[in-house]
Simulated assay, not measured.
Amino acid sequence: MYNATVARLTYRALLGRKRAALLFALPLLLLVISVAVRLLAGADDGTTGDLLGGFALATMVPLIGVIAGTGAIAPEIDDGSIVYLLSKPVRRSVVILTKLLVAMGVSVFFSAIPTFFAGLILDGNSRHLAVAYGVAAAVASLAYSAIFLLLGVVTRHAVVAGLVYALVWESLIGSLVPGARTLSVQQWALASASHIADGGAISAQVGLPVAIVLLVVVTLGATWGAAGKLRRLTLAGEE
């Protein structure tokens, strides 16, 4: 269920100049802010939680998910080059799974690792906040990759739709509206973080069992939807 050639092409597309610049810019900004906060305010658990939860998990992680998830397939569909890939003797489900794994790997690398190191810079992993938010960023990255890969297959405006979802739903509505928090990937990820950090350091609006179920259902559902949509995409010679 993994094709090395498809993976290599996807990595090349995601780590090209423009996308690579965006992928590096957001984590670098987080680390720069973390250093500045530590120098100006010193180590503080409350500040650490606000920065890692408010910026890293609520904004940076979904934005990186948009770049990686949509960038794994949407540009190929938009410019028509996907036909060359689909004309090869590779199952379309394998194409989707391979691209998803690449998108997940890129998202986790550029989200979870910088979040963890930002936590170390801010307070040296006091109350296990660095590890907790790092794990939350990794968990959220997996779900976001699947969601945004699906958007990349179903719409030609995947980046716009992804940005609306990331900035409006996750960063704004999902953070402020109580009822919407249950359907927020951010809150599902926070549920895992709350069980890693020392008691009371991190709170989530969703219990861990429910969060795990929703994460699995959304990730698998988005993957299945993307594979089904790509399977129905016909080439000129197939019509």
Rank of each mutant, 00 (worst) to 15 (best):
Y2S: 10
Y2V: 13
N3S: 12
A4P: 13
L9F: 04
Y11P: 01
R12A: 08
R12V: 01
R12K: 12
A13D: 03
L15H: 07
G16N: 15
K18M: 07
L23Y: 04
L23R: 10
L28Q: 06
L28S: 14
V35S: 04
V35G: 03
A36E: 03
L39W: 15
L40G: 08
L40R: 09
A43M: 02
D44P: 00
D45M: 00
T48D: 12
G49T: 15
D50R: 01
L51H: 09
L52F: 14
L52G: 08
G54T: 07
A56C: 00
L57Y: 12
T59Q: 02
V61H: 04
V61F: 09
G65A: 02
A68D: 00
G69N: 05
G69T: 01
G69I: 08
G71I: 10
D78R: 12
D78N: 14
S81E: 00
V83L: 06
L85I: 12
L86Q: 03
L86R: 13
K88Q: 05
P89V: 03
P89W: 11
P89I: 05
V90W: 08
R91G: 15
S93D: 10
V95W: 06
L101D: 05
M104L: 01
I113Q: 06
F117M: 02
L120A: 07
L120P: 00
L122V: 01
G124M: 04
R127D: 14
L129I: 14
A130E: 11
V131I: 13
A132V: 07
Y133I: 09
G134C: 09
A136W: 15
A136P: 15
S141R: 15
S141I: 12
A143H: 15
A146L: 12
A146Y: 11
F148R: 11
L150T: 10
G152Y: 08
V153Q: 03
V154A: 11
H157T: 05
V159P: 02
L163E: 06
L163H: 06
L163G: 06
V164W: 04
E170L: 03
L172Q: 11
I173G: 05
I173Y: 04
T182Q: 08
L183S: 09
V185P: 10
W188K: 03
A189F: 15
A191K: 07
A193R: 05
A193D: 03
A193F: 07
A193C: 06
H195L: 02
I196S: 06
I196F: 13
D198Q: 04
G200H: 02
A201D: 05
S203I: 07
Q205I: 05
Q205P: 00
Q205C: 10
L208S: 13
P209K: 02
I212L: 09
V213W: 13
L220V: 13
G221I: 10
T223S: 14
T223Q: 10
K229V: 07
A236N: 12
